[in-house]
């Protein structure tokens, strides 16, 4: 399976460390997770808590291999900024989708699924399904 066919994953959090750690965790939990392009877009460009449209756009461009990009976001402005960028039309790669999923569990599911060469719809479905994994 060539890397060129894999869906890219972007993790958007208010915190740079949360985004980076979840990216690391998700890739670490997948056998060939390093084959999947995962980029963290956490915090503001100044290093504070918040959301940066610039970091999100750069992350999406960095993981785009032509098979689509799945974006997971944590809270409030992270979600709103991704939605606003998508509405803008030309800020994110074609075939970029905001995925409605729990941040950590959804990221793991998305990276695992992307590593199998699944298409964007399947990656999205796997991440969304993570909401259904009850813990008690």
């Amino acid at each position: 399976m060539s890397d060129a066919s894999l869906v890219g994953i972007v993790l958007v959090s208010h915190s740079a460390r949360v985004a980076e750690s979840v990216a690391e965790l998700a890739q670490g939990l997948v056998g060939d997770g390093s084959a999947v392009s995962v980029a963290a877009a956490g915090g503001t460009t100044g290093g504070g808590f918040g959301t940066s449209a610039e970091l999100i756009a750069a992350a999406a461009a960095a993981v785009d291999r032509g098979a689509g990009v799945a974006v997971l976001a944590d809270l409030g402005s992270a979600v709103l900024t991704v939605k606003a960028l998508l509405a803008e039309g030309d800020e994110l790669p074609d075939n970029t989708r905001l995925v409605d999923a729990p941040f950590v569990e959804g990221a793991v599911a998305a990276v695992v699924t992307a590593s199998t060469g699944a298409d964007l719809g399947a990656v999205e479905a796997a991440a969304v399904e993570a909401y259904a994994y009850r813990k008690v």
Partner: peptide
């Protein structure tokens, strides 16, 4: 505004 605010008001006022 969308690219510089960093909080929810950025995408909202930007939109």
């Amino acid at each position: 505004l969308i690219s510089t605010v960093g909080g929810a008001s950025g995408p909202l006022y930007g939109t």
